[in-house]
């Protein structure tokens, strides 16, 4: 059962409330998205750790229901 962008955003926000999320539907099939996630909680974490936080937020859907999510994460620029 493919996912829609709002579902993905909702799940990420549940675990990473301050996340600013931009989701791009790459193919319109509900299965291939790109997501850009910016959050203060990423500060000081490696990319692997940042991505793992997002995957955990998706509660196991990554690699299953959600076949492809091209992910880019970053902490907000130092203001």
């Amino acid at each position: 059962m493919p996912m829609n962008p709002a579902e993905i955003e909702g799940l990420i926000k549940q675990s990473i409330p301050d996340a600013q999320i931009t989701i791009e539907d790459l193919r319109g099939d509900g299965d291939h998205y790109a997501a850009y996630v910016v959050s203060g909680s990423f500060k000081g974490k490696t990319r692997v750790q940042q991505h793992q936080m997002v995957y955990q937020a998706l509660q196991g859907r990554m690699g299953g229901e959600l076949h492809a999510l091209a992910l880019q994460t970053s902490a907000p620029p130092e203001s």
Binding site: R47, V48, H51, Q52, M62, G63, L71, Q72
Partner: peptide, 24 residues
């Protein structure tokens, strides 16, 4: 604890999946 394939290891250390490798 990484849900996707491929996975790259350098000198025994997990570096990342496709997104991270492409970005790096």
């Amino acid at each position: 604890n990484w849900p996707t394939i491929p996975q790259l290891y350098v000198k025994g250390e997990f570096v990342g999946g496709c997104d991270i490798i492409r970005e790096m």
